[in-house]
């Protein structure tokens, strides 16, 4: 028997496999890697009239002017604040809710409530934004209708920068808390039941069992998810923000993605759009790699 087949014969042997995966490979070449050439526009003063090859090369000028723009820090702040608020307010909630669901004694009660709280996750951001308008807009919002019936003046929640961050976090909490419990609930099922029995014999109270058995039991899951979440600090929910965006809240709503979109696509400033996108992509990559490495060091498989 031949120890090592020739490359050609191995390729021939797998001809059907290539056939099967050909569309996927072509897809990745065309839609995932070909656009990366476009990243070079970040180093050009791209003009659609001159085209890619004739546009002037400007080195890092686009980046320099982007960093010097005072608005850069506004976007950086918005990204960090929204990310931090989501982490601080939203991250603990699915943990609390899964502990609560785990403590229920009636299976039916539990599954009915799970079914309900998962539901908003399946609703699009467009509908979520619409529901937010029904709740908060000054014309048709429920809250302002209540204010009206109490004789109080209306508040324009959606155009007041004061409320923007909290509205965005509120939407995330409403939409994703229930869904977020899935992983924690499945982590809880892996905890050894003998521990609970032993604790019961020792006379541990319900709260003590939660704090000393359940919570430590899911702690590894919590830590890993937290680290992976930190890896995504630059992804604060592009569609969500875009939908809640209006010119009055620009100073608190603008993030790198929305800016890249306005400048690059709406305004046709391709080079600036690509520069912003590339900056965000590279920083995001660094965060992701760091968090993934940390997660792996703590014994998780990481995400890649």
């Amino acid at each position: 028997m031949q120890r090592k087949e020739s490359l050609a014969s191995r390729i021939f042997k797998h001809r059907y496999l290539y056939l099967l995966s050909s569309i996927t490979l072509i897809y990745f070449a065309v839609f995932r890697y070909a656009p990366m050439w476009g990243l070079l526009m970040a180093f050009q003063k791209y003009s659609p009239f001159k085209g890619f090859w004739k546009s002037a090369w400007v080195g890092f000028d686009n980046f320099a002017s982007f960093f010097k723009d005072p608005f850069f820090f506004v976007m950086l702040r918005n990204t960090m604040v929204i990310s931090f608020l989501k982490l601080a307010l939203f991250f603990p909630l699915p943990i609390v809710l899964s502990l609560m669901l785990n403590e229920t004694r009636h299976k039916k009660f539990r599954s009915v409530n799970q079914t309900i709280v998962y539901f908003p996750y399946f609703i699009s951001w467009v509908v979520t934004a619409s529901l937010t308008f029904f709740l908060l807009s000054s014309g048709i919002g429920i809250v302002n209708k209540i204010f009206y019936s109490l004789g109080m003046p209306a508040i324009s929640f959606l155009v007041d920068p004061k409320y923007f961050w909290i509205i965005v976090v509120g939407q995330t909490v409403w939409k994703e808390t229930g869904y977020g419990t899935i992983l924690f609930l499945s982590a809880i099922t892996t905890i050894d039941l003998a521990q609970y029995e032993a604790a019961e014999i020792d006379g541990a109270s319900r709260m003590q069992r939660i704090l000393h058995i359940t919570l430590p039991g899911i702690l590894p899951t919590i830590v890993i998810l937290l680290i992976l979440r930190l890896g995504q600090v630059f992804d604060v929910g592009f569609e969500q923000i875009l939908l809640m965006y209006n010119s009055s809240v620009r100073d608190v709503a603008e993030i790198f993605d929305t800016y890249a979109y306005w400048q690059g696509i709406s305004q046709g400033q391709y080079s600036l759009g690509v520069t912003v996108g590339l900056f965000k992509g590279v920083v995001g990559l660094v965060f992701l790699l760091a968090s993934n490495m940390l997660a792996k060091r703590l014994g998780s498989e990481g995400i890649f």
Partner: peptide, 11 residues
């Protein structure tokens, strides 16, 4: 491509 993509404008 899981961790990096060309971004909105090139796509």
């Amino acid at each position: 491509t899981l961790v990096f993509n060309a971004g909105i404008v090139p796509n």
